[in-house]
């Protein structure tokens, strides 16, 4: 039997789950971005090539 009727309760839970999912994705993006900036002083290209700030001579 398939579920056809969406209760208000499901809508609220869905919004909560989507919110938590987006927050987790944002958290990962922020930690990644901070790591890149801290390691390379903002040189994203160098970070993607695996070069650290030390290697760049900064």
């Amino acid at each position: 039997m398939s579920i056809t009727k969406t209760h208000e309760l499901h809508k609220r839970r869905f919004s909560r789950n989507v919110g938590v999912g987006l927050l987790l994705a944002a958290f990962i993006a922020i930690v990644f971005g901070m790591t890149v900036v801290k390691i390379t002083s903002g040189d994203v290209g160098a970070a993607l090539q695996g070069k650290s700030r030390v290697e760049n001579g900064d």
């Binding site: 209760h7 309760l9 909560r16 919110g19």
Partner: peptide
């Protein structure tokens, strides 16, 4: 399914949406 359970027929105030948090 939860939606077929009569105890969930009323809106439960304690089930908050994301906006409430």
């Amino acid at each position: 399914d939860l939606s077929t359970n009569s105890s969930f027929s009323d809106t439960r105030p304690q089930d908050a949406g994301f906006a409430d948090y």
